[in-house]
Amino acid sequence: MIFEIVLPVALTGVIISAAAALKFRDMMASVVLLCAMSLFMAASFYILQAPDVAIAEASIGAGISTAVYVIAVSKTGRREDEKGD
């Protein structure tokens, strides 16, 4: 039951939040969506029976990486320019 229902939901969450992080012009929204992608990734690692990787991904991806991104965004501009790429 878990492999047929919960695992496709978690993997779809990874794809949707990663694709939506590219869409916004406000950088804080992209950072929050990257944190959500890391959370879905840790859930799917746990369902695939790899608990060491799940703990490492949850603590590093959703903790340290998000904190470094927030510090970097708060010291530079928050909005992406209209004609920049």
Partner: peptide, 24 residues
């Protein structure tokens, strides 16, 4: 998590990252 790395899932890298989130 660091100290029981040879019994439960965890180990050095994950435990060190958990300890570093307190500084944040």
């Amino acid at each position: 998590v660091v100290l029981h790395g040879h019994l439960t899932p965890g180990g050095g890298f994950a435990g060190g990252a958990v300890m570093a989130t307190f500084i944040a």
